[in-house]
Nucleic acid binder design. Sequence first.
DNA 1: AGAACTATGTTTTTT
DNA 2: ACATAGTTCT
Length: 728
Amino acid sequence: MRVQSSFPENQSAESITEPAPLNLAQQIAVSHGDGPILVIAGAGSGKTRTLVYRMAHLIERGVEPESVLLLTFTRRAAQEMLQRAGELTAGSCRRVMGGTFHATANILLRRYGHLLNLGPNFTIIDRGDAEGIINLLKSSLGMGGAGKRFPSKRVVMNLISGAVNKSSSIEQLVYEDHLHLTEFLNDFYTIADHYRQFKRDHGLLDYDDLLVYWKQLLVESENARVELSSRFQHILVDEYQDTNLLQAEIVRLLAYCHQNVMVVGDDAQSIYSFRGADFANIMRFPEQFPGTRIVKLEENYRSTEPILQLTNAIIANAEKKFTKTLFTEKVGGVRPQLAAAPNEAAEARFIVQEIQKHHQNGTPLTDIAVLFRSGFHSFKLEIELAAHGFDFEKRGGLRLTESAHIKDVLSFLRVIINPWDNLSWNRILLQLEKVGPKTVQKILNSVRQADNPLTALTAYRPAPTWRLQFEKLVDMLGRLHQPDLTPSDQYDLVMEYYSPIFEKIYYDDYPKRRRELEQIKALISGYGDLQSFIDDTALDPPEVGADAEGIRSEQRLTLSTIHSAKGLEWDTVFVMGLAEGRFPHQHATPGEQWEEERRLLYVATTRAKKELFLTYPKEMLGSDRQLLRASLTPFLREVSPGLYTNIDQVSARTPLQTGQYQQTTSQLRHPNVQSARITYQEGMRVTHAFFGHGRVVSIPGPRRIEILFDRHGSKILHLDYAKLEILD
DNA sequence: AGAACTATGTTTTTT
DNA sequence: ACATAGTTCT
C-alpha cells in the first residue's frame, strides 16, 4: 500500500471566485491511473468534485460512458454530479449509469433476476408498507391485542434490517435495546419468518432484499458476475463511509475483474450506523483492494477559520481519532455565536429575528439554513416563520408518500401493477362505506386464489348496502386496464373515482391535501410507464412541498434535519435545539451511539460557510409535557469557550423564569437534566394568550386550573394545553 | 358481529 | 397527523 502524502503545495484555494479546489480535484482525478483509489476527504474539501472530475477524465481518456457506474447516496446527488460532469464533457456523461445502490439494484435485478429464480415482476415496498405487513401478521398471529406488547412493528423492522446489514446477531441487538430476551425472540422469529414468507408469496422486495439479492446474484451466478464486471469497467462511489457491509461486498464483487474503484468518504461524517452503515468500510478498503492509493484531502474550502476551529474542536473530542484535521486558508471571519434562550419560543424568535436581519442586509434566503436533530424540533420555529411571512422548505421529516391520501391514490395504481398486492387492496376496499376489516378479509379470501384477482373481483357478490360503490370501483379498475393509457391518464381515472371519497374522508382539510395530490400528478406525468413510477416512489419518496413547480426556490429558506442536510452548504447556518436531552438524542447510549451524535453535530456545523449560529433553550417541554430545565449539549460544553461568542441578549418577550420548580423522578434518570414543573397556586395573577389577564381561583384536579378572567369570566383550563404565563 | 365513533398515544435520524 | 384501543351504535 502506497500512501501519497498530502498534495502539491502550489495548489491553494487562493481565488475567492472559485471557492472549491478546481485544480486540485482535477489533478487528483487525472493523476492516477486505473486501480483502486481511496480518497479520504474532510468536510468541504471537494470530494464530490474529485469524483466529478474523475468521471469526466475517464470519458476523455476514451472510456465508454456506459461502462462507468456511479454510486451515490441519493439519486439527487447522482443527477447533479452527472450534470456537472456532463458540462465538462459535452454531455457524454449522460450515458453513465448513476444512482443509489438500491435504484441500481432494481434495474439490474429486473434484468438478471431470472438467474435467481426471481421474476421481473417484483414490487418494491417501502418501510411504511413493511410495517403495515408486520401489523397484519401480528394481528393474524394473535400478537396484536394488547397493543403495546412487543415486538412492535418498528422494533421488528429495525431488527430485521439490522440483522441483514450488520454483522452483529439479533440477540446482541435485542440485548442492546434492553428488551426481555427469550420472550421477545420467540415472537420475533415467528413474525420474521411469516414476513419473509409473505414477501415471497406476493413478490415483494424491501430495501434490504434489493441489496441481498444483488450480492447473491454476484456470488452465485458466474454469468452475472462476469457480465456485470465487464460491463462496468470503472466503479465510482461517493460517501463511502455510509455504506454497509453488503454494499461494500457488492463493490468488491463488481470490481472483481478489474479493481478499478474510486471511493471517496470521510470517516468523521459517518451518521447512518442505525441502518447498518459502518465507517470501518473505509478503513478496510486498502485491505480489500491491495495496491490502493490513498489520497487525503485536508484543506477545507468551505468554511472560514473560526468556524473550522470550532468544528475541529468538536470532533477532536471523539473517542476514536480520525484520520485528519482540517485547515483552511480562509482566515478572518466571525466566530460562531452561541445563544441560550430562556425557552423554546424565545429560541424560535431569536432565529427569526436574526434571519430577518440577514435578509434585510441583502442575504438571499436560499443562503440560509436552520438545522436540527429531529423533525419535530422545528415546529415552534415553523409557526414563528409563518407568522413573519417567511417561506421555507423543510427537508426530512414527513415524506409525501407517507400521508394517508397519497397512499390511497398510490394503492389503486399498485394493484394495477401487482393484482396480488393485498395491502393495497385492503386500503382500497376499506374506503367503501359499510365495509370494515372483516368484510375486506372475506372479499380477499374469495378472490385470492384466482389467476387474476381483478376479474375475480368482478364476480364477487357485494352486500346490498355497499353494492353501488363497489360496482363503481370495479368499473374504474376495469377502465384502468385499457391498453395505451399513459400513467397520467390512469391517474386521472383514479381521481375521478377517488375524489368524492377523498372529500368525504378529509372534509376538513382536503384543499391542502389536494394540492399535494397535484404534485403527485405532476410527478407521474413525467413517467412513461407506471412500474417505474411505483418503484421510484418506493425507493426515493418525494418530500412534502419540495420541488413544487412554480415556487421560486430563490425566496425560500431551508429547514432541515441534519441527516437530510448532508453534503449541502449555506453561507449562514443555524443549528438549533443544542440542549442536553435533545442533542444527543435522549435514547443515545454511551459509546458508539453517543459518538455518532457527536459526528452528527460535526456534520451540522461544517455546513456553514461564513456564519454559524448555535442556539438552545434553557427550558423545554419534555416527553411527559413537563417543563424541563435544559443545559447546553455536552459536545459544546467540552470545547473551549473561547471558540465561540456568547450572545446573552436573547430575551423572552414573555418572561417565564419566575415559575416554581419541583423535582421529579426523571432527575434521577438523567442526572444532568434538571427537571421541573411549574406549579400554580390560588391567587396567582396569570395571563392567557386569548382570554387576557386573570386570577387563579382553584385547582380542581391534576393539570386543571380554574381562572377568573378579568374580561371573560371564569374558565377551567387544562394545563397541558393552555398557554398561561405567570405575572409578577 | 361488525361498523362507526371517540379518546389516547406516539415520533430519531432514512436509502 | 396517524394508528390503535375501547366504546357505542346498528
